[in-house]
Simulated assay, not measured.
Amino acid sequence: MKDLRCIGCGALLQTENKELSGYTPKSALEKGLETGELYCQRCFRLRHYNEIADVEMTDEDFLRLLNELGTTDALVVNVIDIFDFNGSVIPGLHRFVQSNDVLLVGNKKDVLPHSVGTGKLTQWLKERAHEEGLRPVDVVLTSAFNQNDVRNLMKKIDEYRKGRDVYVVGVTNVGKSSLINSIIKIATGEEEVITTSRFPGTTLDKIEIPLDEDSFLIDTPGIIHRHQMAHYLGKKDLKLISPSKEIKPVTYQLNPDQTLFLGGLARFDYIKGEKQGFTAYFARDLKLHRTKLEGASEFYQKHVGGILTPPQADEVANFPKLRRVEFSIKEKTDLVFSGLGWIRMAQPGVVACWVPEGVDVLVRKSII
Rank of each mutant, 00 (worst) to 15 (best):
L134P: 02
G163S: 03
K120D: 11
L63P: 01
F199V: 11
I218Q: 04
S21Q: 05
R161H: 00
G119Q: 11
F299E: 05
Q276D: 06
F85R: 06
R164N: 07
A313K: 10
F85N: 06
T71F: 05
E159G: 06
C9E: 01
L362W: 02
P113G: 14
K126R: 14
L262K: 05
E19T: 11
K156G: 07
E16A: 12
F319I: 00
Q123R: 15
D257S: 14
L134H: 04
Q147G: 09
D212P: 00
T58N: 13
T71I: 09
A11H: 03
D73N: 05
S99K: 08
G295Y: 02
V97R: 01
G133F: 00
K275R: 14
C353S: 14
Y167R: 08
M57D: 09
I329N: 04
G170F: 00
K330Q: 13
R64E: 15
T291A: 12
G119W: 02
G70D: 04
T251K: 12
E37I: 01
F299V: 04
L69W: 00
N181C: 06
N318L: 09
K321W: 00
L262Q: 07
T203I: 01
G263H: 00
L93I: 09
K31T: 10
K108H: 09
R323M: 11
I157F: 01
P210Q: 04
K332H: 07
A266K: 03
G36Y: 01
K162N: 13
S242P: 04
L179F: 05
I80R: 01
D59G: 14
F145H: 15
G163A: 05
Q98K: 14
G87K: 07
K275I: 07
L63H: 06
K155A: 14
E191P: 08
H227R: 15
V363T: 14
R151W: 12
V355L: 04
A144V: 08
K332N: 10
L141A: 09
A346S: 13
V105K: 10
N17F: 06
E127T: 07
D81C: 12
D73H: 01
S328L: 14
T188Q: 15
E132N: 11
E37C: 05
